[in-house]
Nucleic acid binder design. Structure first.
Lengths: 206, 206, 206, 206
DNA sequence: GATGAATGAGTATTCATTCAT
DNA sequence: AATGAATGAATACTCATTCAT
């Protein structure tokens, strides 16, 4: 089991450290057997805690799952933000962040599985990510790209494509082109023609 | 509770009639509370049967759900096939069948909910529907439309858009444009430019 | 599945033939999975009948088991009686019938298993067999052998040794000596010294 | 309901005390209605616990039964060992321990019933008891008694005689002579002549 | 804060038995 | 006589949750 969030909380109070243990545990177990087959007892056991401890920190399993998914999303958003800060074009930022999101999920299947599982219940597409995406789109438009600001439903469509991409990575086939195909589709939904979408992908993805 | 499949089985043997009762019951209950919150006891109770009867017909709840979803998909595919048989253009058939699929789910939320729930587990996109779609795409290409035959992953993307459309209908907001936006997105993914997609939707959807 | 009793009932009425089918079925299934894991549904299924038919013939499973065990015991007793009719000494008849009982159970494990299973509930040692045994003992005594007529409890002890022998055969190890060891023990319990018991076994068992 | 094992665990941790309650409960209920008619719910109810508690301590009913039978066997073996420690002859130890085993089962029918029920499934004859018996036999041989060390199958025969004795006690008839008859039979199987066996029983049993 | 034993409502599943055909 | 669909009581087992220590 990875101790990513527990390590991060190394210098925080005991309460936060125990909480992080449970989050790491949730990520590992949900990845392994899905939300539905993860019991509170297993969760605490894997964290090296007693089951009663769970209720000192969370009201129920769903809350922990939500918190774990959110924690992952925040870290991903930070990593992506750092990576694209020296990409100047809106188009580039869109493509690179999308690709990076998908690649990270591929590189760390536990995180991908957790995001995918969490999205089954209530995953309004991580707001940070959506906000960043909208900013990048507006930048691209200002830079003359033929895109349009998506409305709420189109954003949901894009979210659905992202979730599908993450899940496809987890299944494990065709991994190379999943990122390309998802970026391509996203750009088309944002207003690019197929040719423009292909050019953008070719430019920013190698 | 609707007795759609039970009425259909009116003239079949007792075994099939009871089976149909369970399918109707599954559709109603899954729509009301989701797969996970539907117990076998409720299922049989709603069907006016004793709980043991369930196991004379199905191995477990999942099998019933799958069968119910399949039954719905088949009926929908038949209805759609009948409706588009006098649409001559491939483009028209694509748009009209997609719209009809979504509209039917909207008109009969129980069916929509069931398809959406079933798709959470195993959604290879109903094969009939995918096959018909592929045929329509090929027809459109022969008729000079600027589309391309989608590969497997692109088909999954289209499936994800369809599921999203159905789910959005169930939530109940913006119903008018869901069909339009989904057809539009689908055509873009199939190779149409945004302008071409908009024209096609305007032509075949009123 | 063997059709021993069904074949035997070939010329009887339909009722008896169906009944025999169920007895054959019970023997096969009980041998395979024990009384407790044999359901009425499997019983009728294996007999090629519908489950309702069972209740046209038996009140419950136990009755069928009892009847099947009895049927086996009767056939065995007949076979043994025929075999020992030309053994003149009481001692010889005791040893030969005991050996034959055990050997038959070894040769036909289904029968052995059924007898063993039936004995777990209520197996007052097949009366026919006990009666014959007592007659043989009295004959031996008249012929000057140093045996004594066993009382009721000693008969139970002998019965327990027989059941143990049958079960040991089914497990499959040391089969050669089981018959010898059981005859030897039985003769000792009937009053023979170890030497006399060994001599008798050596004389009548090869 | 007797609280024998619970009383014994008076000074142990809560876990062990609860466990003991379940063992006492199992002994009482199995004696009353047999293993097969004892449900987990009754078991916990009789112990004054909730049904879920059972599964905090045992995997299934069989495990509890096994454990209860083992606990009884250990206590009996200890008691017997204490009682025979001042019997000097091997023959005497054999007779006295056998008698004591049977008498204790008679005095405490719950224990007898439990041992008898447990032996239906897996009865390798309690190892302690078999080991002690073998030691006593070797001692008797060294002391010049005409016995022989039994092989494995003969040990099984002796075990079957013991189980029969316990069961006969439970039925309740002829209790006086069961011990005598069993000791007598056992000695004969170990190599004594009927006369020698009778003498030994007369010497050590009053 | 952490522990872990105890709780008990909730659920799936089996299977002997009935009975209309 | 045979059929087989339906019945429903019986039961094992799970697991979120509580609470005394």
């Amino acid at each position: 089991m990875q101790h990513f969030f527990h390590d991060r909380a190394r210098n925080e109070g005991k309460r936060m450290r125990t909480r992080s243990l449970l989050i790491d545990s949730a990520i590992a177990l949900v990845a392994e057997r899905g939300v539905l087959n993860t019991t509170v007892q297993e969760l605490t056991r894997a964290a090296g805690l007693s089951n009663g401890t769970f209720y000192n920190h969370f009201d129920d399993r769903e809350q922990l799952i939500r918190e774990a998914a959110t924690a992952i999303a925040i870290v991903l958003a930070e990593d992506i933000a750092e990576r694209v800060q020296d990409v100047d074009t809106g188009l580039g930022r869109i493509v690179v962040s999308t690709d990076m999101f998908i690649s990270r999920a591929a590189a760390n299947p536990d995180w991908g599985k957790m995001l995918s599982e969490a999205s089954k219940n209530a995953f309004d597409m991580q707001l940070d990510f959506a906000q960043n995406l909208l900013a990048d789109i507006r930048l691209a438009i200002r830079q003359g790209e033929p895109l349009q600001v998506p409305d709420r439903f189109r954003l949901f469509q894009i979210g659905a494509l992202m979730v599908l991409a993450v899940e496809a990575q987890l299944v494990g086939r065709r991994q190379k082109s999943i990122s390309r195909d998802t970026c391509d589709a996203m750009l088309r939904l944002l207003g690019a023609t197929p040719d423009q979408a292909r050019d953008a992908v070719d430019t920013y993805l190698f």
